[in-house]
Nucleic acid binder design. Structure first.
Length: 948
RNA sequence: GGGUGUAUAGCUCAGCGGGAGAGCACUACCUUGACAUGGUAGGGGUCACAGGUUCAAUCCCUGUUACACCCA
């Protein structure tokens, strides 16, 4: 006997273990022989992460698809794993070192530090995957991958080397977005421009050999120390004559040219702009056009470096601003200051650190080349986005894609497989400073040495790995000490890493040094769909499950991840990594605010699971997952679906109490009772609707269809109507109904299983204790295939019965008939069909409408309420109870309602244009509806006249 | 500045070229042999505003307003 209430907490853990023990999550579990495959790769959560509501939604949707297709008999793989999350992970471990007062990252050195990160990963890295398990995720955990696994790292190296050899990866000195806190480059996507209250400082620069001055405006006065020119528009009449002259840069005394460039907008500010190529993306372009050498004024932590006058060296950038503004004001260079809203680039994660454009050597991917086929795939429909509108977002990004900076000055990640050495004097680039050191890119150090050996001939090659050995390398190589990074400017910092190509090369010995940088975390994520399946090895999994079917993700990583998977997938496997990208909504709080820790409005899915159960949590997320719309999560909804779980539980409990046991050879087509034929048909329709909705990625429709059917049809009507059968005398009817109820419950458990896996599996086991033994767990049972069970006649009869019962209940309520009182029902003017239906459903009618009996008559008692249903009038004699005025009012109201319907239709039917242009079936429908309404009015009028 | 989306019941949201829907909340009644995490019956909406297209607009188009997000 089932408990009165379902207790998720105890059941969920047990059920999850049963699934695991049965191997139900394993790739191919439950698949029919020769089945189609269906595969999904999980968007790998950060190894540092913990489950938030977005993950919960994302993985609920994936699990629904996976469970659904698994039950449909497909050969299913849900590939799980985690991402090494370079920055986040490195920071966590660094913080841990600090808290424990242990040596810092740099003090302990690269090798030791990486050991510590791996230790951390072993201890704490599994958190989020365990949380996914609590949600019920049925991923194949035996195939769990990590982006820094040996296999995945092999894929990363292979991709890097191949792209390098193809010229699609290159190294260059460019302005990049620099994070002065982490001292690394980051990609454009990791920068968030935030509108801030700023100032516009207007500076008056003196012109050499003249009394004239030129005024430039800037939002960043401290960068004036790195100015190399002043630009004016070449057609600007005010300044035209100054082009070619020079200004003397205040505070610095540098003589810099006034140049003509269209970048200077005459409408903006004074029309003249200072040019600081090393610290502004636009200025960099201007500088390149005019052959101006950028002057970098910052260290890697954004303090002023040795390129500025001695007085300012070592100052933090913000302190420098204050000081420089004060001095400029004092010397009269600062003319005036405007308040202005400005966009300030912040670190997207912390939103605390201001990002600096910074000139360094970095590695880039020619994304613009890789983007072309990836763009075509979507344009030509080989990969579709759901909802479609995201395709435009994808196009907009891909069509304007910029080179992707992939190197990061971190330790945790895939170290770039590039080794540097000096150039030979015979090298054509020997005298080209821009070319940098000689670079050997290879899969392994051994291969790199082979390449180097070919270049250096018989010289002995010594490899310095970087990290701990870097000081040795530096000393051996060019005498650089491993000085504190703060004291270095970008140029010397670059040089420390990469041997000055002009240094004399000893004849006997060549030092080779591996690039110390690692790759952007997204570089390895981009390979996830095929690297997890063993690529570059041609594994059976790769052959079977790649390309995958659907990618389920949030739109926030469409650029970070989706676009890059498309590019890499096409480049390295020649095919799109997935045919469908399902973009789910962002989960917001009830008020539509983005959830964030600082706002304190975060709904923790684990709390929801604790309080309401994983099934209710999942069902809520599914029910609210309407396409193309953010969801505002209201706890009340979760509560409502928790109640739904209880409802299902109690329905099963009721069936159990009434001996509804599955029957071995039960044939749903052999039912004789309309009630049973009807519920079987309704189940078929619900199954079809749910199947279609999931196939269409309309998870909310699927969930709602299931909810409506289970609660609104099965519980509210079928079970209620079955009660008199269970307590009745007719053993045949009882047996048929018991068997049918058990059958339908089985179908319900299957239909709900993708949404509510735990409670359904538990009930599957409980209901399996009686009747024929269950062959397998619900998770690998067959999805309902019930087409052809719909029964039009049974449907019509039950519709009629429901309408009659509801009608009687409505009258009772309105006439204030006490709920417990039993009343008589008189049937007037019933045709044969109505008569048969009344007789067939007598006990149900009596019970649900609380009647004391049914009689046929032609005399309608005066004090009675009347109901019109098709040709018959149902009369409730309510002498002593009825309020005649109220009853007349009710009838008049009904007449008025019908009449207004008739009027509305008449207006349409009277319109020749309507008759001429509307579709035939629309007109016919209107006519039918009018006739029905007319008929109803007639009967209602008769009923009213009986009361007068 | 450019782009995308949203505006429907008190709240959270579906829907849709031809009869306005759900859950929650609300009101009344009900301890009727599964379930009060329940049952029954109700109340509640100029479908943001203004134009247009159409025989017909909550739905399509244009504009306005408000909000949200993306990009610069």
């Amino acid at each position: 006997m089932l408990e009165k209430n379902y207790e998720p907490a105890s059941v969920e853990t047990r059920i999850y273990e049963e699934w695991q023990e049965a191997g139900a999550f394993k790739a191919g579990a439950g698949a029919k022989p020769g089945a189609e495959t269906f595969s999904i790769v999980i968007p790998p959560p950060n190894v540092t992460g913990s489950l938030h509501i977005g993950h919960a939604l994302n993985n609920t949707i994936q699990d629904i698809l996976i469970r659904f297709e698994r039950m449909r008999g497909k050969d299913v793989l849900w590939q799980p794993g985690t991402d090494h999350a370079g920055i986040a992970t490195q920071m966590i471990v660094e913080r841990q070192l600090m808290q424990r007062q242990e040596p810092s990252r740099r003090e302990m050195g690269r090798e030791k530090f990486l050991e510590r990160v791996w230790e951390w990963k072993a201890e704490s890295g599994g958190t989020i995957l365990n949380q996914l398990k609590r949600l019920g995720a049925s991923a194949d955990w035996s195939r769990e991958r990590f982006t820094m696994d040996e296999g995945l790292s092999e894929a990363v190296r292979k991709v890097f080397v191949t792209l390098y050899e193809k010229g699609l990866i290159y190294r260059a000195k460019r302005l990049v977005n620099w994070h002065p806190g982490l001292e690394t480059a980051i990609s454009d996507l990791e920068v968030e421009n935030i509108e801030t209250n700023g100032k516009m400082w207007h500076l008056r620069y003196p012109i050499e050999g003249s009394e004239e001055t030129i005024t430039v405006a800037t939002t960043r006065p401290e960068t004036m120390l790195g100015d190399v020119a002043v630009a004016v528009h070449p057609e600007d009449e005010r300044y035209k004559h100054l082009i070619g002259k020079h200004v003397i840069l205040p505070l610095v005394g540098r003589r810099i040219p006034i140049i003509g460039d269209e970048y200077a907008d005459p409408e903006l500010g004074s029309g003249a702009v200072k040019i600081t190529p090393a610290h502004d993306f636009n200025d960099f372009e201007v500088g390149q056009r005019h052959g101006l050498k950028p002057i970098n004024i910052f260290t890697t932590t954004a303090k002023l470096n040795n390129s500025v006058p001695e007085a300012y060296r070592g100052l933090d950038r913000f302190d420098a601003r204050t000081r420089i503004v004060a001095e400029l004001e004092e010397s009269g260079v600062l003319v005036w200051v405007d308040e202005k809203k400005i966009m300030v680039p912040y670190d997207e994660k912390s939103k605390q650190i201001v990002i600096e454009p910074f000139l360094t050597d970095q590695w880039f991917v020619k994304a613009e080349v890789l983007a072309e086929p990836a763009l075509a795939s979507v344009k030509e429909g080989r990969t579709k986005f759901v909802p479609r509108q995201y395709e435009n977002t994808y196009y907009a990004w891909m069509e304007n894609i910029k080179p992707w900076c992939i190197s990061r000055q971190l330790w945790w990640g895939h170290q770039i497989p590039a080794w540097y050495g000096p150039r030979l004097s015979t090298d054509p680039d020997f005298n080209n400073r821009e070319a940098g050191p000689k670079c050997f890119v290879a899969d392994s150090e051994a291969d790199a040495v082979k390449l180097a050996q070919a270049y250096y001939g018989s010289r002995k090659i010594e490899v310095y790995a970087g990290g701990a050995t870097a000081p040795d390398y530096a000393k051996a190589f060019n005498g650089f000490e491993a000085t504190q990074r703060d004291r270095l400017n970008a140029d010397t910092w670059n040089a420390r890493k990469h041997k000055d190509p002009f240094a004399e090369l000893s004849d006997s010995k060549v030092p080779l040094h591996r690039d110390e940088d690692v790759l952007d975390t997204w570089f390895s994520s981009a390979l996830w769909p095929f690297s997890t399946m063993g690529w570059p090895n041609q594994t059976p999994e790769l052959a079977k499950y790649y390309p995958t079917d659907v990618l389920v993700t949030g739109f926030d990583i469409i650029f970070f991840w989706v676009a890059r998977m498309m590019m890499m997938g096409l480049e390295f496997t020649g095919t799109e990594p997935f045919h469908t990208v399902y973009m789910h909504a962002l989960v917001r709080d009830e008020k539509g605010q983005k959830m964030s820790k600082t706002k304190g409005n975060v709904i923790d899915p684990l709390n929801l699971i604790d309080e309401y159960g994983a099934d209710a949590t999942r069902f809520t997320l599914a029910a609210m997952a309407a396409q193309g719309r953010d969801m505002r999560l209201a706890i009340a909804r979760v509560e409502g679906y928790r109640n739904f779980v209880t409802k299902l539980w109690n329905a099963a409990r009721f069936l159990e109490m009434n001996g509804c046991v599955r029957v071995e050879a039960y044939d749903p087509r052999a039912n004789t009772l309309a009630l049973n034929r009807w519920i079987v048909g309704s189940t078929a329709r619900a199954a079809a609707a749910i199947t279609a909705a999931i196939t269409d990625y309309k998870f909310n429709e699927a969930a709602n269809a299931a909810y409506d059917f289970v609660w609104g049809t099965f519980c509210d009507w079928y079970i209620e109507l079955a009660k008199p059968v269970f307590t009745g005398e007719d053993q045949g009817a009882k047996a048929e109904t018991q068997a049918t109820a058990a059958f339908v419950l089985d179908q319900i458990l299957k239909l709900l299983h993708p949404f509510m896996p735990f409670v359904t599996e538990e009930l599957w086991a409980e209901t399996g204790k009686a009747g024929p033994a269950r062959e397998k767990l619900l998770i690998i049972s067959e999805w309902p295939e019930l087409a052809g069970l719909e029964d039009v006649d049974a449907q019509a009869e039950l519709d009629w019965l429901v309408a009659l019962i509801s009608g009687i209940r409505s009258v009772r309520q309105e006439m204030n008939v006490p709920a417990g009182a039993k009343i008589k029902l008189l049937v007037v003017g019933a045709g044969e069909e109505t008569g048969t239906r009344v007789e067939a459903n007598l006990s149900a009618l009596t019970r649900l409408a609380r009647l004391e009996g049914v009689d046929y008559t032609s005399d309608v008692p005066r004090d009675s309420a009347q109901l019109i249903l098709s040709e018959a009038t149902f009369v409730l004699p309510l002498a002593g109870v009825i309020d005649l005025d109220a009853e007349r009012g009710r009838l008049k109201r009904d007449i008025a309602k019908e009449q207004s319907e008739i009027d509305k239709i008449d207006k349409k039917l009277g319109n020749e244009q309507f008759l001429a242009k509307a579709a035939e079936e629309v007109i016919e429908e209107q006519r039918t509806r009018r006739a029905e309404a007319e008929d109803k009015v007639k009967r209602l009028t008769e009923a009213l006249s009986r009361l007068s």
